[in-house]
Amino acid sequence: MLRLVVDLNRCQGYAQCAFLAPDVFAMHGDEGLLYDPQAEAAQRERVAQAAAACPVQAILVEDAEASDA
């Protein structure tokens, strides 16, 4: 299971994440972003790509299985 948060002060609606991981990130209107704060482990690769591709580096992801809670 993945936990994620997007710094929406930073987000400028480039929508790279919504292309790369459409089951987790979705544009809402022209530049608003909605995301699932807890994504399935099966999305790991796509979410990692989305976080890496974000032009303003606004996405923080944690692989919760590996954490101390």
Partner: peptide
């Protein structure tokens, strides 16, 4: 994280229970 509570959660796109913040 609280911001999703008035957005994704009310739209039925995420559960309030699933908003735990990722750790750095």
């Amino acid at each position: 994280d609280r911001p999703p509570l008035s957005k994704q959660v009310l739209l039925g796109m995420a559960r309030a229970e699933d908003t735990a913040l990722p750790r750095r």
